[in-house]
């Protein structure tokens, strides 16, 4: 893998550079897009439909869940297409194909950190107390990264064989969004359905982010452990499948 570090770096740079060159505002879209989504949703959910007290202002609460979700969503969208978009390369030259998925993921990770700048501004604006617990954000993100990478490997390879995968998964993503506490807090969900959040890693991650960033607390270790276990399992299984299918990529791309 280290042998291919330069390749990973330049493929990632390609994604990032290509995007900001195409538009006038360039990288600012990466920051502005989630911010405006947050503004719209905040307006709806703090003026039209009100949630009971969350302990923190709704915009901050929402943003802490929205940013990781947008990252998840865009990263999977990009990695689902990445093998198809790079079919001329796949047909001509060999390098481990997971590098393509990894690079598209890293480009979106760059976006995620860039758009988090406004989140920090928001924390300052609403005078949220900064604590050391916030640093726990890094390991949580790493687990989310493994989860997303695993799912990305799975989707990208299957999509190369059947394009239905991307359409089907878009549907699933819409449903998944509402079953993840992005807009709301888990406590507002009926008790008998809350087990969904335990087996949904995205919900585990978002709850954990909120605990460490806004709650001034440690994450729920039990849930995080389940989330991490699912992520590692998914990644391992997807990677093995990906490597098995890899030999046939050039034949179908």
């Amino acid at each position: 893998m280290f042998k291919y570090w330069d390749l990973v770096k330049h493929l990632t740079l390609r994604e990032i550079r290509a995007r900001y060159k195409q538009s006038f505002l360039g990288l600012f879209w990466v920051i502005l897009n989630p911010f405006f989504q947050m503004l719209i949703l905040s307006f709806v959910f703090s003026n039209i439909m009100r949630f009971p007290d969350l302990g923190v202002p709704y915009p901050v609460f929402l943003y802490a869940g929205l940013l990781p979700w947008i990252y998840f969503n865009t990263a999977l969208g990009a990695s689902t297409d990445v093998l198809i978009n790079n079919s001329p390369l796949i047909k001509k030259i060999y390098f481990p194909r997971e590098i393509l998925v990894l690079s598209s993921l890293l480009a979106k990770t760059f976006d995620f950190f860039l758009s988090s700048i406004l989140f920090i501004a928001l924390l300052l604006f609403f005078k949220v107390t900064f604590t050391w617990y916030m640093l726990m954000f890094i390991p949580i993100f790493m687990i989310q990264f493994i989860f997303t990478y695993g799912l990305g490997l799975l989707l990208s390879s299957l999509n190369l064989f059947y394009r239905d995968v991307q359409f089907l998964f878009n549907l699933i993503l819409t449903m998944w969004f509402y079953l993840t506490p992005v807009l709301y807090a888990t406590e507002f969900f009926p008790q008998e359905y809350r087990w969904i959040f335990k087996i949904n890693p995205m919900s585990v991650f978002i709850n954990a982010y909120r605990q460490v960033l806004l709650g001034g607390n440690m994450p729920n270790w039990g849930s995080l452990f389940i989330g991490a276990a699912i992520s590692v399992f998914l990644f391992t299984a997807s990677y093995m499948l990906f490597k098995r299918l890899e030999g046939a990529f050039a034949d179908v791309a």
Binding site: H10, L13, R14, R17, A18, N86, L89
Partner: peptide, 23 residues
């Protein structure tokens, strides 16, 4: 490789030289 595979139209010649080289 088929000329241009891996090249990206929006990137400069310089950037593409590096990209193509590492590929």
């Amino acid at each position: 490789i088929e000329l241009g595979a891996g090249f990206h139209p929006e990137l400069t010649g310089r950037e593409n030289v590096f990209l193509n080289g590492v590929i």
